[in-house]
Design a protein around this nucleic acid. Sequence first.
RNA 1: GGCCGGUUGGCAGAAUGGCUUAUGCAGAGGACUGCAAAUCCUUUGAUGUCGGUUCGAUUCCGGCACCGGCCUCCA
Length: 464
Amino acid sequence: MKLYNTLTRKLEEFKPITEGKVGMYCCGPTVYSYAHIGNLRTYLNEDFLHRILVRAGYDVHHVMNITDVGHLTSDEDTGEDKMLKAAEQEKMDVLALARKYEDYFFEEEKDLNIIRPRTVCRATEHVQDMIEFVKKLEEKGLAYVSGGNVYFDTVKFGHYGELSWKDISGLQHGARVEEDTNKRNPTDFVLWFTSSKFENQILQWDSPWGRGYPGWHIECSVMSSKYLGEYIDIHCGGVDHIPVHHENEKAQSEGCFGHKWVNYWVHNEFLQLKDIKMSKSLGNILTIPALKEKGYDPLAYRYLAMTAHYRSLLQFTWEALDSAQAALNNLKSRVIEIKKNLSGVVNEDKKAGYLNKFDAAIFNDMAMPQALAVMWEVVKDADINNATKWAILSEMDTVFGLKMDEMKEEVYVPDAEVQALLDARKVARAAKDWAKSDEIRDALKAKGLTVKDLPDGSVEIKQI
RNA sequence: GGCCGGUUGGCAGAAUGGCUUAUGCAGAGGACUGCAAAUCCUUUGAUGUCGGUUCGAUUCCGGCACCGGCCUCCA
């Protein structure tokens, strides 16, 4: 399969380090608040990648970190600690807060049918490993202590800036952020904090440099190498991570290991809300529970995410979500119809033809919109039987993850009151008393029930 | 200030040097229905702008306009 590699800015043929296996590390959430649907677009895209790799026959070891250690809002020794701030606001212990939002996060992922990574690792449970890692960097002369903190020396590292194609000399340092005068170079970043102003930071550990806590980037280098080794096939994250977080992870990892670290860097574009930039720090977040409350199926959001390529900005509008929900509903009724009668022989030629077309799309840098178009072709193909359609669709759904196998007619059982209304309407219709019939239909509609008069004279009733 | 990306029908969003510019939703017409709903059939509709290259450009190149991103934390 082909993947776009941020490092080379090119589409490259994917080749695993070990035949048949893929090690994939994805930056996970910082658990001080709910994950919003923008965050989740990235995790959805990573789920598609995971599923596509599985379809390609790989044994995928998917690792995701949970950032549950307080980290500053910047690489400087300034700013505020987001976790600590949230914990104060919610009057909770920091760790309890982290667990709470971690649980919420996986609930949302479950609603979106995202496969849980094989390894989920928490930063707070790997602090000793981080200390060892920083010690190695220190031994190699790539770290220095200044003002009590330990910093990574990006100039000594030698090839900093490769990922974001950043020219260090051209950076306007301090233009938008307070300068940390402890640093030797503007791009240097903290590996271990001891002298930050957060004396009441609850999550602190002893270290050779004093009591403190780790810098933000170190956890990813440490945990990824712990679970995947020093060579990683794919590293994912949002595009926002390219210039700082991933650049820093890469520098410290390659500095520590002494060789190339990640073969393919895959970055997801943002979801964009019209007129609003949604971010946790601004507090204007839209979450899966919020969508559910408005009556949307979380899988409608999953569907929406599939309609755009992962490297394009996706404009989120309520109209777009409505259209995704409508498409999902239509798909559901089609799938239910298809599954009602699966007798007959599968047309293997047609099946192979469609799946080849599908694979061509997904293996070409995850062209999910095109894969969806192929799916609709199958659904609407009048020349193949249901057995063939279902054989194709069920395979496609291992990638789409729309739970097609669970789609079934929802049987509505009317209560006595509703049944009485239905009986009364039946009588009215038999007498051709249309006014009365319509009146009852409106009354049922007010209760959230739609009535369909089927051609055979029976009545179908559904909850809206 | 520096560096990037984008502009496709009503919305979202693919693709492509020429053939009907996917797909979903919405819209229109018809069948069906007492009327609806659902379904089925049919169907309208788009490449920001000005130039250039070319037999031919939505696609390649350049100017302009507008939108967005990054250089701070962020998926």
